[in-house]
């Protein structure tokens, strides 16, 4: 698979997984029941839907940016390069998050607690900063202004999913 296809696919996949987890986080601390798997599944679907909507909007913006470019091929190459820059920042972070989640799910309780205290908790805290850093890094290396603006818009719009899902569905306790 060429970079022109792989980069947007990988970025979109990461954004969708992040959106599902954002939906989960948006719903946490709002339901005191013990058995709430279904509640969280719904929350993750809502996050996923929010993430898909964001990606849809971004696709329209990118389409417009490409359509208005003097040379769409060069602009697409520039966007792909910017996406690669984003991945250099987001990729390692996403890999550590996934490894922490898998470890939390499969490890015995004490090492799982260790993972939470050293992994999942701090990772949640730094996630917005990592996302913004990825957007700014891509913007810094972008070939032109429209590409730079697209990367910043993409990064910040991903961060909007969690607060939107929370305000829309989970502002009050269940």
């Amino acid at each position: 698979m060429s970079a022109a296809v792989a980069v947007p696919v990988v970025l979109a996949s990461i954004a969708l997984v992040d959106a599902a987890l954002a939906g989960f986080r948006a719903a946490t601390g709002r339901n005191g029941l013990i058995r709430k798997r279904a509640y969280y599944v719904v929350a993750m679907r809502r996050g996923l839907a929010g993430g898909a909507a964001v990606l849809g909007c971004l696709a329209l913006v990118l389409g417009a940016v490409l359509a208005t470019a003097p040379d769409p091929g060069t602009r697409y190459t520039g966007l792909t390069q910017a996406g690669i820059s984003m991945l250099w920042v987001i990729g390692p972070f996403a890999a550590v998050v996934v490894a922490s989640l898998v470890g939390y799910a499969v490890l015995p309780r004490r090492p799982a607690t260790f993972l939470i205290l050293l992994g999942l908790g701090p990772l949640t805290l730094i996630r917005p900063w990592v996302t913004v850093a990825a957007g700014l890094t891509a913007a810094w290396t972008a070939l032109d202004l429209p590409t730079a603006v697209c990367t910043v818009v993409a990064a910040t719009s991903v961060l909007a999913v969690e607060p939107w899902v929370h305000r829309r569905w989970y502002a009050e306790p269940a």
């Binding site: 946490t28 601390g29 205290l117 908790g121 701090p122 949640t124 805290l125």
Partner: peptide, 9 residues
């Protein structure tokens, strides 16, 4: 740890 966790969660 408490600061971090209560801030994050």
């Amino acid at each position: 740890g408490a600061w971090m966790f209560h801030r994050a969660r």
